[in-house]
């Protein structure tokens, strides 16, 4: 299905191509006695989509917040195009588009007012912003609803607004925590195709978390599997299949095998009684 969102203009890279867009280097984070992250390392090269997978509570959202500078790691460093994120968080945020796991928008604003607000925050030019926002509103079938208060939106509509807000300023890195939550099939397809388009055509780096492993298998170049705050495995889907000894299997079987939750037969039997 062709997405009605036009491709973005290509951008000239300002850093050597050998430098990854995002480099997470040995970050650890604890909350009191709870270890949220333990020596997590991975990188996201420009133009690639990296899936961050893991069971609930594995540390995916904490990792993403750390990339944004919203969580300060106890140890380790995070570099965005070679620069330490914490050295100048404001500059780093200018280059990132973010969708949190449960986007809390300002529900007393209309969709248009919210997107206008976001555009102001990123300093988007007044004349260019309208065309760009309208383009996204049409692409995500929100046109006609943009003048309504967000409090009246469905969960899917709010998710679409959050996605547009993350994309509107043409970020170089997208950090998307369960971005397809609540989206209808058409919008989910638009989003997936758009992400692939942004990565391959414009060199945008995408860090993407999802629990729907078919989606990760379909669009991710690499995956990083977190468990109990640590990286359990990383690489291409093929390399993880080989590591799990499950050649020819889907990512779901590989994931369940690697995270030690593969044998679910007894659980299902017990629940079905």
């Amino acid at each position: 299905m062709a997405a009605p969102v036009a491709p973005l203009p290509s951008r000239a890279p300002s850093v050597p191509s050998s430098v990854p867009a995002l480099e997470v280097d040995g970050i650890s984070k604890s909350y009191a006695a709870v270890r949220a992250l333990a020596d997590v390392s991975f990188s996201v090269p420009a133009g690639t989509i990296v899936g961050l997978l893991g069971p609930n509570g594995a540390g995916k959202s904490t990792t993403m917040k750390a990339v944004l500078g919203l969580v300060r790691p106890d140890r380790g460093r995070i570099r965005l195009f070679g620069d330490d994120v914490l050295a100048d968080p404001t500059r780093a945020k200018q280059q990132i588009g973010y969708v949190p796991e449960s986007p809390a928008l300002y529900e007393f604003l209309t969709g248009a007012e919210y997107l206008d607000f976001v555009a102001d925050m990123y300093g988007l030019d007044g004349s260019a912003r309208e065309a760009r926002i309208q383009q996204f509103l049409t692409g995500f079938e929100l046109a006609g609803h943009e003048g309504s208060l967000i409090s009246g939106y469905s969960q899917g509509m709010k998710q679409k607004v959050a996605l547009i807000a993350a994309l509107v300023h043409r970020p170089r890195l997208l950090v998307l925590d369960e971005p397809l939550n609540g989206l209808d099939p058409r919008s989910a397809r638009v989003t997936k195709d758009l992400l692939r388009n942004l990565a391959t055509r414009d060199g945008v780096a995408v860090l993407f978390s999802t629990h729907v492993l078919e989606i990760a298998q379909a669009i991710c170049d690499d995956v990083v599997i977190l468990s109990h705050g640590a990286v359990l495995a990383s690489g291409t889907v093929e390399s993880l299949r080989a590591r799990a000894g499950l050649a020819g299997s889907g990512l779901e079987d590989v994931f369940l095998s690697l995270t030690g939750t593969g044998d679910l037969g007894d659980v299902v039997q017990a629940l079905a009684r």
Partner: peptide
Amino acid sequence: ASAEVQVGSVRFASG
């Protein structure tokens, strides 16, 4: 459920 409230005409303007 909260009703959808149409606030008014849509215009995008910076500043």
